Simulated assay, not measured.
Amino acid sequence: MKNDFEENMADIMIGEAVTALLDEDVAISWAALTDRLQSAIENETDEDRIRAGLRAIEEVRREMQIRGSEKTGVASLTEQKLH
């Protein structure tokens, strides 16, 4: 049950980070997304959101590795655009 909650909260935090980047008219990249998630948990006091934020960062990094192995030589992983 706790894993489901953390997974859902991680998805919500990723959505919040993407929405914030779009609102600020920032190009969405793996680096921008991980930076935004890191910023979100730095001043967070809720332990559930901190754990979920760390899980979200892990998910994004895992996806970066998967996508990076599919697209070698195109751009560095931190520069690849998501949209």
Rank of each mutant, 00 (worst) to 15 (best):
R67E: 14
D11F: 03
A27S: 12
D35A: 08
F5C: 11
T78N: 09
E6A: 13
D25M: 09
R36V: 04
F5T: 10
K81C: 13
M64C: 06
R36T: 05
M9I: 03
E70T: 12
E24C: 11
R62E: 12
T34I: 03
I28V: 12
E44K: 01
D35C: 02
K71M: 15
E59M: 11
S29L: 08
I12D: 07
R36C: 08
A52S: 07
R51T: 06
I66A: 14
M9Q: 10
V18L: 06
W30K: 12
T19V: 10
H83A: 15
E44H: 01
Q38I: 05
R67G: 13
L21W: 05
L77Y: 07
A10E: 04
T45N: 00
M64A: 06
E59I: 03
I14W: 01
D4L: 15
I12L: 07
A20N: 07
L33R: 06
T34G: 02
E44T: 02
D25W: 08
D4G: 15
V74P: 01
E7C: 10
H83V: 15
I50M: 02
G15V: 00
T72M: 15
R51N: 08
V26Q: 07
L37A: 06
S39E: 05
F5E: 13
A56W: 01
R61F: 04
N43Q: 04
A17S: 03
N43I: 02
R61T: 05
L82E: 05
S76C: 12
A40M: 10
Q65T: 09
Q65Y: 08
S69C: 10
E58W: 03
R51K: 09
E6Q: 13
V60I: 03
K71A: 15
E16A: 08
L77F: 07
R51E: 09
A52M: 04
H83M: 15
V60R: 02
D48L: 00
M1F: 11
D23G: 13
M13T: 04
F5G: 09
R61S: 04
A10M: 05
V60A: 06
L37T: 03
Q65F: 09
R61P: 02
E79F: 07
A32R: 11
E44P: 02
E63V: 12
T78S: 14
I12H: 04
Q38Y: 04
W30G: 10
E7H: 11
D11V: 01
R36W: 02
S39M: 05
A56D: 01
G15W: 00
R55D: 13
A27F: 08
S29N: 07
E47R: 00
D25V: 06
G68A: 12
A40Q: 08
R62Q: 12
D11R: 05
I28C: 07
T78A: 12
A40G: 08
R55T: 05
M64T: 09
E58Y: 09
E70D: 14
L33I: 05
E59A: 10
A75T: 11
M1A: 11
T45K: 00
H83R: 15
E79M: 14
K81G: 13
D11Q: 08
N3S: 14
I28M: 09
L54A: 11
D4W: 15
T45W: 00
D35R: 04
